[in-house]
Simulated assay, not measured.
Amino acid sequence: MSNAANDARAPAGAWDAHADDYMRLFSPLTGHIARGMVALVQSRLPDAPCLLDIACGPGDLAVAAATLCAERDAGSVLATDISPRMVALTQRALQPIDADARAEVRDGQDLGLESASFDAALSCFGIFLFPDRVAGWRTAAETLRPGGLFATSVWRGPESNELAKAQMGPLMSALPARLTNPPPRASWADLMTAEGLVDEITRAAPLIDPEIHILDATLALPTPNAMWRGMVGNPITGALIAACTHEEREDVERAVLAAFENRSGGPDLPFLLNTSCHVLIARRA
């Protein structure tokens, strides 16, 4: 297999490997946000909505959307993700719901779906992580009928989001200087403000009348070590940790766990972090 092919498969493989941990550790948090996103748009949808979930992860938003369709006894849901494992988890979660809902492996940067075929496209903490976000925003908009709704969620910055500050602060302090000089900047840093999020999306895609909502929630993990395990497996933070040598990683783990345990009050106590995100809602021109 060529290097190019390996590179193309890497994002899917990384999220495949993280899928089960993500569902167990972080889905209770992100699922809360996903259900909030569906609640924010549901009164504006037609009676029998055709709904698209982009970067569905383990299926929380798709389940909320399918439940809405089941309550109305009308409508359909298509959930998509680049990760086959995430799609399998979503399909399993959708099975008990009496609705026209399915999950498929598709790349959100090029979905290959018919244009103007959905009433709403939603992405809960998905498109903002794409290697080509502009393609993601544009592709999402292209799937919408005129006037169709787009909604997406993005984490707020550390000044407003305890998760970003308390998770990344100890990691950045513990990493070797060769990995933090210059300090790494999140690829989505410009989207952490409402203004930045609106600006990028409305420039990238034919989406109008943007509005921003703030949704807060608490991440509750059983122990500080659960947070560390989740960071190691996450394709974003895990890439930084994987760049360490074996000895460096041991030092980083000790330092980060010490900071987390100090925050929680001990190694066997729950680890709680308040989180905050922006939800952008706009409509197709």
Rank of each mutant, 00 (worst) to 15 (best):
D60V: 05
R24S: 05
D199A: 13
W188H: 04
P49L: 02
G196S: 11
V41D: 14
P84Q: 10
G136K: 01
A258P: 06
G13Q: 15
R229F: 00
P176D: 13
D107L: 05
L272P: 10
I33P: 11
A17H: 02
L269S: 01
C69A: 12
C56V: 09
S117C: 14
A186P: 05
E114G: 14
P84M: 07
E261C: 02
L29T: 04
M1C: 07
E195D: 15
E142A: 05
W228E: 02
D21R: 01
A88K: 14
D199C: 08
N181W: 00
T237Y: 03
P11W: 06
A101F: 06
D190Q: 09
I127F: 04
P183C: 02
L94A: 06
L171K: 00
A258W: 02
A116I: 08
I214D: 15
A101Y: 07
A259S: 04
E211C: 14
A99Q: 09
D47L: 11
C244T: 00
A62E: 15
I214G: 13
R263Q: 03
S187V: 04
E200C: 05
L51K: 06
P222L: 01
M86W: 15
D53A: 04
E71P: 06
F130V: 00
G266D: 14
P267W: 07
V105S: 04
F150E: 10
R92V: 09
R9H: 15
P170R: 04
R138S: 06
V63Y: 11
M192S: 11
F125L: 06
R9Y: 13
N262S: 08
G36F: 11
L149E: 12
E200I: 02
I208T: 15
S264K: 01
T223Y: 09
N161K: 02
H18Q: 10
A14L: 08
S83F: 12
T275I: 03
E248Y: 02
P270H: 02
A282H: 03
L197H: 13
L51S: 10
V77N: 09
I208L: 10
T139Q: 09
